[in-house]
Amino acid sequence: MIRFDNVHKRYSDGTHAVDGLDFEVEEGTTTVLVGPSGCGKTTTMKLVNRLEEPTDGTVYYDGTDVEALEATELRRRIGYVIQDIGLFDHMTVGENVATVPELKGWDADRTDERVDELLDLMGLPPGEYRERHPSDLSGGQRQRVGVARALAAGPDVMLMDEPFGALDPITREELQDEFIDIQREIDTTILFVTHDINEALKMGDRIAIMRDGKLVQYDTPTALLDEPKTKFVEEFVGPDRTLKRLRVLRVEEVMRPEVPDEYADIVDAFQGNDAVVADGGEIVPVAPTDSAQVALSRCIQAGVEALPVVEDSTVVGVVTESAIRNRQSEGA
């Protein structure tokens, strides 16, 4: 969807912000650019919507050299979310979200409908929020409006530059989780910039680690944790790689789709009640999309070796502590 072909960006002061970048952001994926500050990740992102122009090399958008496209036209096809949010404070929430549809000349009915739909999606009921001004909202709500505004005209690509960076940890976590759900619904190609490796591991299907304008490693989160290619990546990922793997590993990847006899009592106990008191504590089931970390922590808390996996209130299998453990040692 987006391809960088030997892209360089040098500034007149001599800074080599992007140094020979070669990689492709695949359609439908969330690709995270991550690295220490000053590594060129934001510049790389801005090369896509032409807020920056490469000094050498070519950036392709859907097969076309971006230089060959009209900058404003290109930008209207790309959603853009920044850390400082940049809402238009003089407009209402609804007017903010309507920005790109209006620039594109949609008719008023279609725009209104779309605005309401997006506010609903972002958990801001239109009846309550559409006519309010951004200054009335909390930081988290403001960034929700920022995301809604970027999604308004149904972009093929979203560029998100540390979108949750300025929020408090709790709100950040909340918005990350919500955005992961939204992302499944909208199926857009996302290029996401962050300096936080945990956020990268959580949000990304693919992660591009950058340093000094160069791509150091481009891999899936699991591959990155299993096989860091350089010392730098290893240090950047941190010494607790094994624990981080638990976070990217989903229950559905390690669960058993049937209930073996030895765990039947745990499942039975669970099915009797919503949460059953076992030896240690109550058994809280997990969902297939939960992380192995959640499953493991609930196992330990309840003092059991396995947990039922529940989807739409039916038991679809079990996940065992040993399965998680085995998977982890395979990786390491």
Partner: peptide, 27 residues
């Protein structure tokens, strides 16, 4: 006008005139 709002306006595809008319002048 807030720099971030101007940057967002540009990034969302406003021309210079549209930024003037929709963001800078109303403010």
């Amino acid at each position: 006008a807030d720099d971030a709002a101007i940057e967002a306006g540009t990034g969302l595809g406003m021309t210079r005139l549209e930024r003037l008319r929709r963001v800078r002048l109303p403010v």
